[in-house]
Design a protein around this nucleic acid. Structure first.
Length: 788
DNA sequence: CAGTGAGCGAGCTTCCGCTTGACTT
């Protein structure tokens, strides 16, 4: 039986610390918070000083039972939860829930998991800091009040099951407002001049790319400029060299790791956290939910050794970074490899790729600045005042760039700086190969990726490292936001080219506005946001969290009483809630688009029971017509013409084989229905334009494909086994399951034994969790919690 | 691979922040 029981939050941490302390210490984990407000109702007695009603969380019952038993047997209990507001509260909840004795309970803290840090902590225990605990209670209760008062308002005024909260609602607001900025953006264009110039040097020929620093506003002006360059002389009049330096970024926090993993590896924020968790559990990296850029002394030392032996001392520079982010609590270290000596492993797994990113970033943070020489070459054009410029950048000493270079969201579209300039000198005459003036359009502000939204939230001090990924999932789960790819649209641009002393003019096409893995607000997200902004401006203010955080800090310092803080928030807030419930209209996002030319009635769009709809006629009218909006159409941007088009379907064509042909649009897009069978209309065809002849063609083509679908049927089996021709070639179908045919096998030659062998072989392969299986797990969990 | 869109009223939904597994047939 151990004399000492140490309780930490994470089991992986418990294992490590257990190794540092002797056999007199038993180290266990409590798995984070162990008590919380009950989920079933608000569980805060607002009449009685905001007394919270805590209960042991259902999934923590067993661990509390075990910890209670162990604590009874121990001489001393050491509460070693994290050194921040939430951690302090966890210690206090443990004290209460385990019924610990104040006399033999000690509170210790450390923010790095090293043996000296732990031993030092054991040497200097303290008492629980009740001011800090109260700051956490204020945080918890305020979030509960906001969430559990606002959400029911939405159920009544917008739609059941919606949610609102201090963090999620502001996250959605950012997306809604960005979307409006994009819609309102009016693009302008200008012309960018690029010249390719060549010269001879010691018998070799070189090419230099130069640009006009100014952008030319109009087409006419650009044409004049290009013409003026025709037959002009180009001379280098200045070569200026400027030294510059680049400094490595700080080691990773949760937020910067999510951003870089998104940019460099294409991970979603939750994917990053799952992979990082695995690395952490395997002991390969430090804790992955942190807002600190701090590195322990041992980490700095081992990075130094690594750099010196691999690259030489010139590449090393010890650095300690300081956190700039708002509201950081710094209970942990930065995210870094546990052992810098463990160099990245070969193999293209997600874990190896993320580990390599962390390893390189950490190492680079302890490396020397990169020294860069920038060169600006100025080129005069005879007969013109303006000069061309060629920019070059040469890395004189690579320093940290040897291992790591950070990516940025707003990186320039085209590389305007060539790495290495050819050997140029003042006075050189250059030959013009080609000069172009290309029309460039200004771009609207970018849509957020998941990681960019995390970055923004962190800047505003909203949310915590442990909640960034869940918040992003929540707003998608509520369907306030969708992450998707959207196709761009073609756009023409002009190019004026000067070549071989002649000027020509061409029009080219580019695709603009193509988006991939970007967050888009939905109609319901927009309606909810507008409703909340109108009625609860205080909560929706981007500075709300920062303001209450300041008060939480005052509570933590003992300068303010937590229940008084809550009272001054609650009284006006609850008045606004009841006022909104009594006075505000249902929010439907209704817009009046105009008048239907056919009927003369008004056309509206709004949110209905099943999503966005268009409506002809008033709500009170007996005869009104409805239609769903199509995929990609939004309440806010749909035009009258588009809405009118919606009512042109379904339409009836002529009869074929004595049956009607109907054109409609369903969940999967436009379709042809004939004899109660469905035929989808190809993407590039307009369902309003489809003729009877074309419809019959599509029907016959589908029949033919279906007829050729079956290659073989084995009638003697149950369920039926077939070899079929599918969209991606031949495959085997057994009941509802499908199986691949191994490459190089002729599907016509397969007999029943072959096919059964393929099916049996597939069963031996490790099964991946796919969409349906996951959904099933989630559903069963839900049923379980409902029963309770 | 549709068409629903209103209202009655049962019972339900909901927050943020800590931490990881998961009753198996």
């Amino acid at each position: 039986m151990a004399k000492n029981l140490v309780i930490v939050e994470s089991p992986a941490k418990a294992k490590t610390i257990g190794g540092f302390l002797g056999s007199d210490f038993l180290v266990k984990s409590c798995f984070g918070h162990i008590r919380d407000l009950s989920k079933s109702d608000i569980s805060v007695d607002v009449e009685n000083n905001f007394q919270p009603k805590y209960e042991v969380s259902p999934d923590k019952k067993d661990i509390i039972k075990e910890l209670t038993k162990l604590s009874k047997e121990a001489e001393t209990v050491w509460l070693a939860s994290d050194e921040d507001r939430e951690g302090e509260a966890i210690s206090w909840h443990l004290l209460e829930a385990l019924n610990l004795n104040q006399d033999n309970t000690k509170r210790i803290v450390f923010h790095e998991i090293t043996k000296p840090a732990i031993l030092k902590a054991i040497d200097s225990p303290r008492k629980i800091d009740y001011n800090l605990v109260n700051a956490q209670q204020a945080r918890r209760v305020l979030d509960r009040i906001v969430g559990y008062e606002l959400s029911p308002v939405l159920w009544k005024k917008v739609k059941p099951s919606l949610s609102a909260g201090r963090v999620q609602s502001v996250a959605v607001r950012l997306l809604v407002e960005r979307e409006r900025d994009i819609t309102a953006f009016s693009t302008s264009s200008s012309f960018r001049v690029v010249a390719l110039l060549s010269f001879q040097h010691e018998g070799k020929s070189y090419t230099l790319k130069a640009t006009l620093p100014r952008k030319i506003q109009t087409y006419e002006e650009a044409e004049t400029f290009v013409n003026a360059c025709n037959n002009a002389n180009f001379t280098i009049i200045d070569v200026e060299k400027k030294p510059s330096r680049r400094t490595p970024s700080a080691p990773f926090t949760t937020s910067t790791l999510q951003q870089e993993a998104s940019r460099k590896l294409g991970f979603s924020v939750s994917q990053t956290m799952v992979v990082a968790q695995k690395l952490y559990e395997a002991g390969r990296i430090t804790y992955m939910r942190t807002d600190s850029v701090n590195l322990s002394d041992t980490a700095i030392q081992s990075a130094k050794n690594q750099i010196n032996s691999a690259y030489g001392e010139r590449y090393h520079k010890a650095r300690q970074f300081t956190t700039k982010s708002k509201g950081a609590q710094e209970a942990h270290e930065a995210i870094r490899p546990t052992y810098m000596e463990q160099t990245p492993e070969k193999g293209d797994t997600q874990e190896n790729r993320l580990y390599e990113l962390i390893w390189k970033r950490t190492l680079a943070s302890q490396m020397a600045d990169a020294e860069i020489e920038k060169t600006v070459v100025k080129i005069a054009i005879s007969g013109l005042e303006e000069q061309l410029e060629a920019l070059g950048e040469v890395v004189i000493f690579d320093g940290f760039l040897k291992v790591y270079s950070e990516s940025f969201d707003d990186a320039p579209e085209e590389e305007e700086v060539s790495n290495l300039l050819p050997p140029v000198a003042k006075g050189m005459r250059l030959e013009l190969n080609e000069l172009t003036a290309t029309q460039k359009f200004s771009s609207p502000p970018p849509r957020y990726t998941e990681a960019a939204l995390v970055k923004k939230l962190e800047e505003l001090g909203i949310g915590r490292p442990s909640t960034y990924a869940p918040t992003i999932s929540t707003i998608q789960k509520r369907n306030y936001v969708v992450k998707e790819e959207r196709e761009g649209t073609p756009r023409n641009y002009k190019v004026i080219t000067l070549k071989d002393s002649s000027v020509s003019d061409t029009e080219k096409t580019e695709i603009t506005g193509h988006e991939k893995n970007k967050l888009f607000p939905t109609d319901i997200g927009t309606v909810v946001n507008d409703f909340l902004v109108e009625n609860f401006e205080q909560i929706m203010d981007y500075n709300f969290t920062a303001k209450v955080e300041k008060e939480f800090d005052e509570i933590a310092e003992g300068l303010q009483e937590w229940t008084l803080m809550l009272k001054s928030f609650y009284q006006p807030f609850i008045k606004t809630v009841s006022k909104t419930l009594e006075e505000s209209e249902r929010a439907t996002g209704a817009r009046h688009l105009g008048v239907d030319p056919k009927t003369g009635k008004n056309i509206y769009v709004r949110i209905g029971r099943y999503g966005a709809l268009a409506q002809i006629g008033e709500n009170e009218d007996e005869e009104k017509k409805f239609s769903n909006l199509r995929q990609g159409q939004r309440l806010e941007t749909i035009s009258l013409e588009e809405a009118i088009d919606l009512f042109k379907l379904p339409r009836k064509l002529e009869m074929f084989e004595d049956k009607d042909i109907n054109i409609g649009t369903g969940r999967f897009g436009p379709y042809i229905r004939h004899d109660s069978k469905f035929y989808s209309i190809p993407k590039d065809e307009d369902p309003l334009e489809i003729t009877t002849e074309r419809a019959i063609e599509i029907i016959l083509a589908k029949r033919k494909a279906d007829a050729e679908k079956v290659i073989k049927i084995f009638n003697e089996t149950d369920p039926l086994i077939q070899v079929l021709n599918g969209r991606w070639g031949p495959y085997i179908s057994k009941g509802k399951e499908n199986f691949k045919i191994p490459k190089g096998t002729d599907p016509n030659s397969l007999n029943l034994t072959d096919v059964e062998a393929i099916i049996a072989d597939d069963a031996n392969k490790p099964k991946k969790m796919v969409g349906k299986a996951k959904a099933a797990t989630a559903a069963s969990k839900k049923t379980k919690s409902k029963k309770k």
